[in-house]
Amino acid sequence: MHIGFDAKRFFHNPTGLGNYSRSTIFGLAEHFPQHSYTLYTPRLSGPFCTLPACHGLHVQEACPLGRAFPALWRSLGIPRAARGHGLDIYHGLSHELPLTSFGSRTRTVVSMHDLLFLTHPHLYPWVDRQLYAFKYRQSCLRADIVVAISQKTADDVHELFAVPRERIRVAYQSCSPAFGVTRDQNEAHRLRTIHGLPERYVLFVGSLIPRKGAQTLISALAQVPGADRPDLVIVGKGPLEPALREQARDCGLAGRVHFLGQVADADLPGLYQQAALFAYPSVGEGFGIPILEALSSRVPVITSTGSCFAEPGGDAALYTTPGDASALAEALARVLRDSDLRHDMIAKGVRHAQNFHISRTSAALMQVYADLCTKR
């Protein structure tokens, strides 16, 4: 098969949808090298521009006009650029498909990550909600198959966009295998030195926006008894950071909450592995990839009830109601005090994470492509 991808996020997003794009494409190229893969991008630039050549991937950059108007090229120009490539599958990796047709040969797939702008509308500006609803609904209705990255997202696509169940497939995402590789003491010392890590800490990784729940975590940490209270290390950036710093000061935790900003991908596994536990009190997600990163890193996880969290967390995580700082404080104290519980959570986490090994997620997605091609 010849499979094409919308690769804008692959090249230009360092986190989130960019990580999903890179993980998906590299997993397919590694485990199914007999197929051809083409990446369509308005501009071949950025820190990831040399990676396709290392994996035997072909890149199709936009024409000069397309580079000048990248959004228009993604909507109208990609099918024209792809007509001579004989694509069997075109996969829009981030909610969208072009508005024009690829022709009868090419089957189309679109990945839907979440519909939080509809399930949690108060978290999004009105204009964004209208734009997302129009673009994402149209892409789902035009696609031959909608790939949902969790069962929760699949349910939302069916219920909110009226897409028939038979046109929706759940294909989970994976995280980098690097999270399962144990870092040695030299690496641990290097990370502690360059990031100023405390001896014992709870880790949070995510954008600093209200939905992710970092404010709840700071409130919870302030309620943990002083003898048990670890520091908090926050990895990520976002508009909420000034308010979180002020909140930490008001709670008497100014010296106990460490804001690292955006750290290098190579440092993340070591930051997870040195944490006493990982807390992710988000209100809602499409999948919650940091949960899987933490489980793969052999770290106990506390996350939220509802949304999709039981899918990446399974029976390995503890769950508290989002926004309930007191319940989160009790869970933090319990895991920090009880070594038997910690060991049980770690063992269960390693087992559960194997369900999302990149060999399995790649095989599930390739089966979606194969099924589409057999129906031509």
Rank of each mutant, 00 (worst) to 15 (best):
G261K: 02
I209V: 15
R192C: 05
G314P: 03
A222D: 12
T216M: 01
Q262R: 11
L116N: 13
L65Q: 14
T119A: 14
F117N: 06
S304F: 12
A275G: 00
R229W: 09
S21D: 07
I25H: 01
P198V: 01
L277Y: 11
S339E: 15
S23C: 01
T15V: 11
T38S: 15
T38H: 07
L365D: 09
A294E: 10
G252S: 13
T374N: 08
S359Y: 00
T106L: 12
L141S: 02
G213S: 03
R9G: 04
C63P: 07
L332Q: 05
P198Y: 13
S297R: 04
T15P: 00
R74W: 00
W73K: 09
H120E: 15
V335D: 11
P98Q: 05
R337W: 00
V109M: 12
T153H: 04
E96C: 08
H55G: 00
G86E: 14
Q60V: 15
Q274H: 02
P300D: 11
A29P: 13
R67P: 05
G16A: 10
S139V: 02
K348D: 04
R360T: 14
A82F: 07
L17E: 10
A82M: 08
L116Y: 01
E199W: 00
L232Y: 14
P290M: 07
L341A: 09
R229V: 04
A243W: 01
H91T: 07
L318D: 09
D228W: 09
C251F: 13
L141N: 04
L244A: 08
L268G: 02
L123K: 10
S307L: 03
I291T: 06
L217G: 03
L72M: 12
C63H: 15
R22Q: 14
G313I: 03
V59T: 13
D265M: 08
D338Q: 11
S282F: 05
L332D: 03
L217Q: 01
Y90W: 07
L372G: 11
V301C: 12
G288A: 10
S45F: 00
T50V: 06
G92N: 02
F287G: 04
H2W: 10
L160T: 08
R142Y: 02
Q185Y: 00
R183P: 00
E159N: 15
S362P: 11
H343R: 15
P164S: 13
H195S: 02
I289D: 00
S45H: 06
V127K: 15
E61P: 00
L44T: 07
D344F: 00
D128M: 02
G56P: 05
Q223N: 08
I149Q: 05
A248L: 08
T361C: 14
Q60D: 02
V257W: 04
G56A: 11
T305K: 15
P225E: 13
